[in-house]
């Protein structure tokens, strides 16, 4: 039974009802506005994540080996062939890996989720990022190590020691790049989670 029937509705009570309904409506609208603006800010940050994971940067890695192949014309054919073949193998491996394992940030689908589910998704992606780092960037820095090693090897009369030195330097450079990229990605996830935690839940 509606309790409003039990209490005789007077003009004062009707006004009270109207005002209360107004308050609830304003609270709901403010909540929606807060949530929309938060989602817009999160979308922007996650968009930058997509660029970091983007497939385009991987193609830049082709430049050194293409340049080296044309430059080292004085080395043996076998040497150049092995250089090209191994580099192409690494490149293809990384491209395929990118397509297979890039954590696609499907913003439209994610923004349809409630804030709680969205937070869970972001946390899951952050955890997956650690796994992606080991596998994906491991391949990248091995490749860079190989390229630098081969370049020095070819420059210095195909001696082994320069190759090893070059490979070690390349590995360090690759690792630094990979760690920096990884930290930047994790930073974005943490930023997003901090933003979401500001929303009352």
């Amino acid at each position: 039974m509606c309790n409003k029937d039990e209490l005789k509705m007077t003009a004062e009570l009707e006004q009270l009802h109207r005002e209360y309904a107004e308050l609830k409506s304003m609270l709901d609208k403010q909540e929606i506005a807060n949530e929309q603006s938060l989602k817009a800010s999160v979308r922007k940050k996650m968009g930058s994540l997509k660029r970091l994971y983007g497939k385009k940067w991987i193609h830049l890695a082709l430049i050194p080996f293409v340049a080296a192949t044309f430059y080292y014309t004085h080395v043996s054919l076998g040497m150049r062939l092995s250089f090209v073949i191994v580099s192409i193998a690494f490149y293809l491996g990384l491209v395929i890996w990118n397509f297979v394992s890039t954590p696609e940030v499907d913003m439209d689908a994610m923004l349809d989720l409630s804030i709680q589910d969205f937070v869970q998704e972001v946390k899951k992606k952050k955890q997956n990022q650690f796994k992606n780092f080991r596998l994906r960037f491991g391949l990248v820095f091995i490749w860079i190590a190989y390229l630098i090693g081969e370049c020095i090897h070819a420059s210095m009369g195909e001696m082994m020691l320069p190759f090893l030195i070059g490979a070690a330097s390349g590995a360090v450079i690759g690792l630094c790049i990979a760690v920096r990229l990884h930290n930047r990605i994790i930073g974005i996830y943490e930023d997003v989670l901090a933003d979401l935690s500001n929303l009352h839940e």
């Binding site: 209360y20 308050l23 609830k24 609270l27 709901d28 909540e31 709680q116 869970q120 009352h200």
Partner: peptide, 23 residues
Amino acid sequence: QQQEHDFTRTVLAYKSTIYAICY
């Protein structure tokens, strides 16, 4: 995690009411 999820879903439905009462 499930408990947290259930709690949030349940309480969220009454959020504007709780805010109105606080107000």
